[in-house]
């Protein structure tokens, strides 16, 4: 059982530190991406400027349900991060996070705008693509550690990556989708131009878009947290693994075109399930 102090710490870190960290990472990401494209790029703090500006803009809505959905997305993302820092059940964290995804979709669908709706449908397809892969990665972790709890992973003697290398790849596959990076920036792209405008984000504006951005900061932290678990034995190892993974994501983002969702579903399932199967069988055999 967690001590009260630990609980409070997790709460504070999860609610307040995580989005700041997430924003910084997003800023760094934009900076590195710019450098990769031979540009100077925005300041590291740019995501915060963006959010602050959006918060100060006029409230413009198609219906109030949109505002509610954006808000639920934020709460779900924050809750999942808090649960993560409380070293709770991974599967549960993941399901709580799915609440956000579902409400984002519902919020986008609540507007009869074709771009928003197509974005929502694509977002659902993305959920459909990454969710099984993530569940299977978690199952693999369970097979390896005997528990879904994060605390169980920290109890490990040696890094999980050594035993679950293929599942780590699968995780990377799934997280590229979640991070909205090319080739999977299908339902809504960060800033690139897209045939569906900005997909799920199209009809959100001003403060409500800011809420979604903040929620995305939380998600970035959750995603990188998941990655860090694969080298849970040393703090340096964690940092190195997270940094390398994120760099790889940025690199992939910059050397591939956006694919179609049909390709995404079939390829992610084909590759992801095969890798999972091999890794899981090698664990259980």
């Amino acid at each position: 059982m967690m001590s009260i102090l630990g609980f409070l710490l997790a709460l504070v870190v999860g609610v307040f530190v995580a989005p700041i960290l997430g924003g910084l990472i997003t800023g760094l990401d934009r900076r590195i991406t710019a450098r990769i494209q031979s540009r100077l790029g925005p300041p590291i703090l740019q995501p915060f400027y963006d959010v602050a500006k959006l918060l100060g803009k006029e409230k413009l809505l198609n219906n109030s349900w949109q505002a509610f959905c954006a808000y639920v997305y934020l709460v779900a993302a924050a809750t999942s991060v808090v649960l993560f820092f409380m070293q709770s059940d991974l599967l549960l964290i993941f399901f709580v996070q799915a609440v956000g995804a579902v409400f984002l979709v519902i919020g986008a669908m609540s507007v009869p705008s074709p771009y928003s709706q197509i974005g929502a449908q694509r977002e659902l397809i993305q959920v459909l693509t990454y969710e099984p892969l993530l569940v299977l990665v978690l199952a693999g972790i369970y097979v390896h550690t005997g528990t879904f709890k994060i605390s169980g992973i920290y109890a490990l003697e040696e890094p999980m990556l050594l035993k679950l290398p293929l599942l780590f790849l699968v995780l990377g596959y799934a997280l590229t989708i979640k991070l909205r990076k090319s080739p999977f920036d299908i339902s809504a792209s960060a800033h690139a131009h897209q045939e569906i405008v900005r997909g799920v984000y199209t009809e959100f504006s001003g403060p409500y878009l800011a809420i979604l951005e903040i929620a995305h900061f939380y998600e970035v932290i959750l995603i990188l947290g998941l990655v860090s678990l694969f080298w849970s034995t040393s703090f340096v190892g964690m940092l190195v693994l997270v940094a390398l993974t994120y760099l790889a994501e940025i690199l992939v983002d910059n050397v591939s075109s956006r694919m179609t969702w049909r390709w995404m579903v079939t390829s992610a399932w084909a590759v992801g399930l095969t890798l999972t199967l091999i890794n899981l069988l090698s664990l259980t055999m």
């Binding site: 540009r39 090319s182 080739p183 690139a192 131009h193 910059n254 075109s257």
Partner: peptide
């Protein structure tokens, strides 16, 4: 064209 299929880095490269 690169931008049309979402290859941002290539877009920037050609424009550079």
């Amino acid at each position: 064209f690169a931008d049309a299929f979402g290859f941002e880095a290539l877009f920037y490269q050609f424009w550079k």
